[in-house]
Design a protein around this nucleic acid. Structure first.
Lengths: 316, 316
DNA sequence: CGTTCGGGTGAGCTATTGCTCACTTGATGG
DNA sequence: CCATCAAGTGAGCAATAGCTCACCCGAACG
């Protein structure tokens, strides 16, 4: 009677699982109780797991985050994903993700062997850099993916590279260029000059890229910060731009646009699909389409976000 | 900030627990992920358990039985307790508990060192003996706790001792006495004669006593089987008898009665409280008060029953 | 400002667990 | 009735987990 046997075997598996997980006995004890060899007890316990007779339930807000992260990781084939719990006190704060980004930078920079870290735009990235614990790593390199001179010629507020270099003693490569050039030709000329080519070369070898993700709407950060004009923004939106990474605008499917400001951008373009670890850091309902597109298009292969954003991305 | 620390520590514990139990990582991997030593990862996992952040749920009928058994064991301070799942096909069958009793006997008798097993009355005990797997143990001893001659002088239907001896080759000690004598004096005389004293001596050294539990109502097994008359039964009920073990009647608090048929019984009286392993085997709603009283009074220190009965006992 | 104390940490040892392999057992089909 | 084969078993080993110990850090307190 196969059915009978299976049933009794599952019964024993359940018994073993109960004794192991709930009563907390060792497999040796269980083996004695059930009158089987220890090996068999072990098999029963794993059978109990395999047959999903037993389930684990983690009663903690973190659990939901872990699960969201795992789902995002699988859905978009990511090398890294973190979802931070929502802070009920400040439901849109970048603090949480900044802390995680900082942690990521910390652990990357802790390495004794030289590493190259490339940084993009974004408040989360900026805040992360501020939270990095100082550490002396003169052989590391920090490189900017984006020009730090804004349209009016002043140095950008986002001098993240310099700040991170301060904290690590690493060599750093800011990009001494305006964010946008006035024409495609001019851009092409500029990116070929020696110091810029050097920055590009270093960036190409980066071990980690940490980038912000901006949405392309009326509140787009690139516009708010004065890097692109209202008209330029609207043109990109008309062309289908839904998000941007280091200024590079892409559409809802994560395809890079080949027009508008993208032709005059000095920023180092993302690899598509991302081969080096490229972590996007962003939160907020407004950024959901932009993040989703970046994930779908393979513009990033890692994500750090919060619970609400993660959930919204998965629900699309 | 202690609160903050505690919180973040619990967060980490939850994370570690999730990664360990749900994602199935090793503690070493978790240690790397969370940037802590393996020892700390281990601590986080056990903290997760200790704080009950994680719970196990066993989705199997057996789980309920295991839990009932554990509760009975604790409530009544038992050395052994088994609760078998209810068979939806035959909700009052002794088959289930007989199988477990047989298993218990099997494992006791499997011992190479000589053991003494004492048997009481009851259909479950009888059925258990029939299911014992034959094994050659000539040095074991099987002893009856109860006279096997019924009122009419015939050998009792319950010759369990003989049957078990057949299957094991063990020496056996039936009790060549009527269940009840006609008077207290006569009983006292009989139990002093040599063969009976010998049986008592062996029984006193028993390693395991396996006994049935009878309820004292109109369907009491002792009456149905013809060991006590209707009038005797009614007298005991009037005296407060609620159950019996090897014929010895006790009240709702598990106190042995000192009157009626108990004065003329030849059966070996239970130890109170039970010191040697004394397992009661019984199922059925009708027996719930009798079983509960036996447990409360310490007449038995082990129980084998079914799910419904266990639940009813615990609900009293 | 130094001392004490509680809690956390990592090293390292031992128990427990997971797994592989060769073997047995019991069902199935020629 | 025997050959075949899938499934289960126990021995033994390598990986993993649990635990103890000495130590360290930071907070509370004199």
């Amino acid at each position: 009677m196969a059915a009978e046997n299976d049933k009794s075997r599952l019964d024993d598996a359940a018994r073993a699982g109960w004794l192991y997980f709930i009563a907390g006995h060792t497999q040796d004890e269980i083996a004695k109780m059930l009158q089987v060899s220890r090996a068999s007890a072990q098999r029963l316990v794993s059978l109990c797991l395999a047959e999903r007779l037993i389930t684990f339930r983690l009663e903690h807000p973190i659990a939901a985050c872990m699960e969201l992260a795992a789902r995002l990781k699988q859905r978009f084939d990511l090398v890294h994903c973190e979802v931070v719990p929502e802070d009920p006190a400040a439901p849109q704060a970048t603090a949480g993700i900044a802390e995680r980004c900082a942690n990521l930078l910390d652990s990357t920079l802790r390495s004794e062997t030289p590493v190259i870290v490339a940084l993009g735009t974004g408040r989360a990235v900026r805040a992360a850099v501020e939270r990095v614990t100082p550490i002396d790593r003169p052989n590391h390199q920090i490189v900017s993916l984006v020009g730090n001179i804004s349209a009016d010629g002043s140095a950008s507020f986002y001098d993240t590279v310099g700040r991170l270099a301060d904290r690590t003693g690493a060599r750093h490569y800011p990009m001494p260029l305006p964010f946008l050039m006035s024409s495609e030709d001019e851009r092409n000329k500029m990116v070929r000059i020696e110091p810029i080519a050097k920055v590009k070369a270093v960036a190409a070898k980066a071990d980690l890229r940490l980038v912000g993700i901006g949405q392309m709407d009326q509140k787009a950060q690139v516009h708010v910060d004065g890097f692109v004009t209202r008209d330029e923004l609207f043109e990109m939106m008309r062309l289908g731009a839904i998000g941007e990474i280091t200024g590079w605008a892409y559409d809802a499917k994560g395809r890079m646009l080949k027009a508008g400001t993208n032709k005059r951008l000095t920023s180092i373009p993302p690899e598509v699909p991302a081969k080096t670890t490229t972590i996007g850091a962003a939160v907020g309902a407004a950024k959901v389409p932009a993040i989703t597109a970046a994930l779908s298009g393979g513009l990033i292969n890692g994500l750090i976000t919060d619970e609400a954003t993660a959930r919204a991305i998965l629900e699309r």
